[in-house]
Design a protein around this nucleic acid. Structure first.
Length: 160
DNA sequence: GCCAACGTTGGC
DNA sequence: GCCAACGTTGGC
């Protein structure tokens, strides 16, 4: 199985790229995802060694801040069983957990974060999941071509 | 702050 | 099982 690529969104007010870099071992559990489509990716598709773009949403500017590596593949999200957590899900059965998470570790900060407008202005990225209208998935696939191209963009300053 | 898009919930 | 109402996401 070749390494695969993903994009994960985070609101920096909640958890930012800097928070990831400041975390112990620059590693965090990607918990709190409560969407079935994203859950399926976390549980079934995302494997150790896969690479992740870390994207800041609902902020200015929205941008991919850097890359991370999946250091642990899908396992049950423990926040679903914690009554004190805002992610608590009383309907989830511990014997058959509903929600999953992965662990990611910060890899490289982009010299130049790649902004949403810059990606939109790049014709080769036209089909990218992130740019599709109405897209709300917080975890989404990235193709090898998109990965390579965006890493290239991050090495040079854009107009955005 | 607005609102379009989409997912989820619940009445029937 | 349909679908209207509602809540959330996230760009603008």
């Amino acid at each position: 199985m070749p390494r695969r690529y993903w994009l994960m969104k985070s609101e920096p007010d909640a958890f930012s790229w800097d928070d990831l870099c400041a975390a112990k071992d620059q590693t965090t559990s990607w918990d709190g995802v409560r969407n079935y489509q994203a859950r399926n990716l976390l549980r079934d598709e995302i494997k150790e060694g896969d690479q992740v773009f870390f994207y800041h949403s609902s902020t200015k500017p929205q941008a991919i801040m850097g890359t991370a590596t999946v250091v642990r593949a899908g396992y049950p999200d423990d926040s679903q069983f914690d009554p004190k957590s805002k992610y608590h899900d009383e309907k989830s059965d511990p014997a058959n957990p509903r929600w999953f998470m992965v662990d990611i570790k910060a890899d490289k900060a982009f010299k130049h974060p790649v902004s949403l407008p810059r990606m939109k202005a790049t014709p080769e990225l036209e089909g990218m999941a992130l740019l599709r209208k109405g897209n709300r998935l917080s975890v989404q696939p990235v193709s090898a071509e998109e990965w390579k191209l965006i890493r290239g963009l991050s090495r040079t300053k854009g107009s955005e």
